[in-house]
Simulated scan of single mutants.
Amino acid sequence: MDLERAGPGLLLRDLRRGEDAQIAAITHVLAQTQPDILVLQGVDYDLDLLALSALRDRISEGGGPRYEHLFARTPNAGLATGLDMDGDGRRGGPRDAQGYGDFTGQGGMAILSRYPVDQPGAQDFSAVLWRDLPGALLPLRDGQPFPSEAAQAVQRLASRGQWVVPVLLPSGALQVMTFHATPPVFDGPEDRNGRRNHDELRFWQLYLDGAFGPPPRGGFVLMGHANLDPEAGGGRPEALRALLADPRLQDPRPLRPGAAEPPLATVHWPPPGPGTRRVSYILPAADLSVTGAGVHWPPEGTPEGDLAATASRHRLVWVDLSLP
């Protein structure tokens, strides 16, 4: 949702002032779509969830659902390492954190739910080291670890987070598996970001294989921001394509309304950006019943379309499930 600000506390300030056009547009979109479980990507984190609580209040005041249950953990974004993590010879920059960020918590993740969240039962894999992933595609330069052996010894795999969070529905727990992968660009010939993006996505197949503990039991949904289109643009799409084809998952292929092209797009990055791409995904378990899916993308040039564009470059992706 691009709810990032330039410094800590600024999102909470904007939420409390009630004058921010983007926040107003977001509450309008959520009032229109009424999701029962909402996963946000790109929302600033604070320890006491003050900003998230204020956002929850703004959503309900604007006619959206009342989310009584909130979940967020400290993301890797902005988490200082004290090392040169991008190989530019300097330390302390936003690219030298565990995940890109000017301050700890910038652009984290959050879950807002109408149903209770099993906080003690949540699993946070955000501290898994990249080098501990089986078959990790760690970057090299001139045959040596890039940017250094010391950096690879502490580099976490997740650029923001990797969570498995049980949401307690009347029919039983639904495991919400969520992530936010790094953009596979903004690096050099060593392809550090492209390799990391690939492995952040491959983590989920390994998780389903049981490589990081027992795989999920019962219903589950993998949903997150891959920062990658399987057919267009740069990056290493093999891991994403493998996820989309995994028989344990199903791809409902949420469509934009009308005859808009490309029909599966979830974001529009204006020039000089890459344009319109599919980069956000909701992949329910293969045995769950999907009754509907789509991308909230009203026609451009209409009041509703203008509000959706003001809310975020990333459009809300939704899937309806029929549970026992």
Score class of each variant (00 low, 15 high):
5 R>E: 15
6 A>S: 11
9 G>I: 01
10 L>M: 08
11 L>K: 01
12 L>T: 10
14 D>Y: 07
18 G>R: 03
20 D>V: 01
29 V>D: 10
31 A>P: 04
32 Q>E: 14
35 P>R: 09
38 L>F: 09
42 G>F: 10
42 G>M: 07
43 V>N: 01
44 D>Q: 01
47 L>M: 12
48 D>Y: 12
51 A>D: 02
53 S>R: 15
58 R>W: 13
59 I>N: 02
59 I>F: 09
69 H>W: 12
76 N>A: 12
77 A>C: 12
80 A>Y: 05
81 T>A: 07
82 G>H: 09
85 M>F: 08
90 R>D: 14
93 G>K: 05
95 R>K: 14
98 Q>A: 06
100 Y>T: 15
108 G>V: 06
113 S>W: 00
118 D>P: 12
121 G>R: 07
121 G>C: 06
124 D>P: 04
125 F>W: 11
127 A>L: 11
131 R>E: 10
149 E>C: 05
149 E>I: 15
160 R>S: 10
162 Q>L: 13
164 V>T: 09
170 P>N: 11
172 G>M: 11
174 L>F: 09
174 L>G: 08
178 T>Y: 07
181 A>L: 05
181 A>T: 13
184 P>R: 00
185 V>R: 12
187 D>E: 07
198 H>R: 08
200 E>S: 03
202 R>E: 13
206 L>R: 13
211 A>D: 12
213 G>L: 07
215 P>C: 03
222 L>G: 13
227 N>C: 12
228 L>V: 04
235 G>R: 05
241 R>M: 00
243 L>P: 11
243 L>N: 06
244 L>K: 01
245 A>L: 07
247 P>V: 05
249 L>S: 06
251 D>N: 15
257 P>Y: 08
258 G>P: 09
265 A>H: 08
267 V>H: 03
269 W>H: 14
271 P>A: 13
271 P>W: 11
272 P>A: 03
275 G>E: 01
275 G>R: 01
280 S>M: 12
282 I>F: 00
282 I>G: 00
285 A>M: 01
286 A>T: 13
287 D>V: 07
288 L>R: 03
288 L>T: 07
292 G>P: 02
295 V>A: 03
300 E>A: 15
303 P>G: 01
303 P>Y: 14
319 V>R: 04
320 D>G: 09
321 L>A: 03
